[in-house]
Each structure stands twice: as structure tokens, then as C-alpha cells.
């Protein structure tokens, strides 16, 4: 009930504001361009599943950018506008607040990811790919988006302005994405740690290629859970200072 109230208000703010729609339009436009330039290949023949894997690869980057842009306003905007006092004086728990905000951001991201479906749809019509590959790839996109959104909501709770929240989310996301590079230049046990922490490399590639691995699901769910929990701690500390 309480989660629903927060969810409805935040989703309404996304839908009534222009930021969400601009992000959505920009991502769809760039995704279409990248699909033609990279996924389809410039004059070289590709198998349908290769095109689909390439689509998930390029779209994953855009999903991460969109997640940063959508989540950075989540809590910071409330503090900027002074409406955080409405939440702090409510009977809604911090966990419910965070859950409502996360679900609203994810609903927007799900809409965005869903609207890219026409591209795999064209591959499906003109080529030969399995539903499983499409489904697993989209699950990967959604989980990746969830991890970055959670990270973004956490950063958003730390600042009173969207911009520093967005910058911090961008920096942390980039650090996590490029963590696999560290694994090439470090010694054990840091090699394994850096490889496991990498947001994209080890965990997303199986999804991209249509392979559903439990370890990937657990990883993204864990990242999401940890950052959402950290956000509740930040809100709790601020609520009763």
C-alpha cells in the first residue's frame, strides 16, 4: 500500500516531466543508429544470433546511461524541492520509500527497454533466432539496468542536487564496468575479485549470447539489493538526526 503510493507518485513525476521522455527518445534514436552501424555490420554477412548478440551489447551501454539519468533525480530532487519532509514525516518506512522509488525508476526503464523490441523483432522476422535468446538477453538488460538504477538511487540519496548524484553514479558505474581491466593487471586474489565485481564483462556476456546463468542473476540481484539497502541506511540516518 505504502510502496504503491510512492511508486505511483514517482512514476507520475517521470511521465509528467520531460526528462524521462527525452531520455527515452534519445536512447531509442541512438539504439536504432547503433543497430544499423554495428549490429547489422557494414557489408559483412552475419548470422542472426550474432546480430542479436551485438544488439544486446550496444543496448546494454545505453541502458546503463538511461539508468543513470533516470535514477539521479530520485531522492535528490525531493531534497532540492524540500518535499523530502513529506516522506520524513510520513508513516512510510525507509524501506518502503526506497522500494517505491526503485520500482518507479524500473518501470520507466522497463518501458524504455520494451520499446527497443522492434529491433529484435526485425531480426526475428528476417532471420532465425530463438525466443530464448531474445528473452534471456532482455532479462540481462533489465538486471543490468536494475543494478545501475540501484546505484543511482543510492547516489541520489547522498546529494541535494541531481548533477553530483548523476556524476557519482556515472563514475561508479564506469569503475564497475571497467573492473575487468584490473583483473588483467592484478595478482590473486584481486584478479578474481575484480573479475567478479565487473558489471558487464563476465556477468553480462552470457545474457548477451542467450545463456542464462544463475551466477549472473545472483550478481545483479546482489548489487541491486546492496545499494538499495545502503539507501535505506542513508534515509534512516537523515530522518531522525
Amino acid at each position: 500500500m505504502n510502496v504503491q503510493a510512492i511508486f505511483r507518485r514517482d512514476l507520475s513525476a517521470y511521465l509528467h516531466g520531460y526528462t524521462g521522455w527525452i531520455v527515452l527518445a534519445a536512447v531509442l534514436f541512438i539504439d536504432g543508429l547503433l543497430f544499423n552501424v554495428y549490429a547489422m555490420g557494414a557489408g559483412e554477412a552475419r548470422y542472426s544470433h550474432e546480430v542479436l548478440s551485438q544488439f544486446f551489447h550496444t543496448t546494454s551501454g545505453l541502458v546503463m546511461v538511461a539508468a543513470v539519468l533516470l535514477s539521479m533525480r530520485s531522492v535528490a530532487e525531493e531534497r532540492q524541492d524540500g518535499t523530502d519532509v513529506l516522506l520524513q514525516t510520513s508513516v512510510v518506512s525507509d524501506l518502503e520509500i526506497v522500494a517505491g522509488k526503485y520500482l518507479a525508476a524500473m518501470a520507466m526503464l522497463t518501458l524504455l527497454v520494451g520499446l527497443t523490441a522492434y529491433l529484435p523483432g526485425m531480426i526475428f522476422i528476417n532471420g532465425k533466432v530463438s525466443w530464448g535468446h531474445v528473452g534471456v538477453g532482455y532479462l540481462g538488460l533489465w538486471l543490468l539496468g536494475s543494478a545501475v538504477t540501484s546505484l543511482g538511487i543510492f547516489s541520489s540519496a547522498l546529494f541535494k542536487s541531481q548533477l553530483p548524484a548523476g556524476v557519482l553514479t556515472g563514475v561508479l558505474t564506469t569503475a564497475l564496468v571497467t573492473a575487468w581491466m584490473l583483473s588483467d593487471v592484478t595478482d590473486p586474489p584481486f584478479t578474481e575479485i575484480a573479475a567478479y565485481a565487473a558489471l558487464y564483462d563476465k556477468h553480462f556476456q552470457p545474457f548477451r549470447d542467450g545463456r542464462l546463468l544463475t551466477s549472473g542473476v545472483v550478481y545483479y540481484a546482489s548489487v541491486s539489493g546492496v545499494f538499495l539497502w545502503l539507501t535505506t541506511r542513508v534515509l534512516e540516518g537523515r530522518r531522525w538526526e
Binding site: M1, S12, D81, T83
Partner: peptide
């Protein structure tokens, strides 16, 4: 502290739920 994009009744109902 008001959510300016909401209507008066929508906002008051939201606060009631909170």
C-alpha cells in the same frame, strides 16, 4: 512542500496515503 505537477485533490490523497 508540494508536488507541483499534482492536482490539489490528488496531492491531498497522496499525503493521506503517506
Amino acid at each position: 512542500p508540494l508536488y507541483k505537477e499534482m492536482t490539489v485533490s490528488g496531492f491531498l490523497a497522496h499525503i493521506g496515503r503517506l
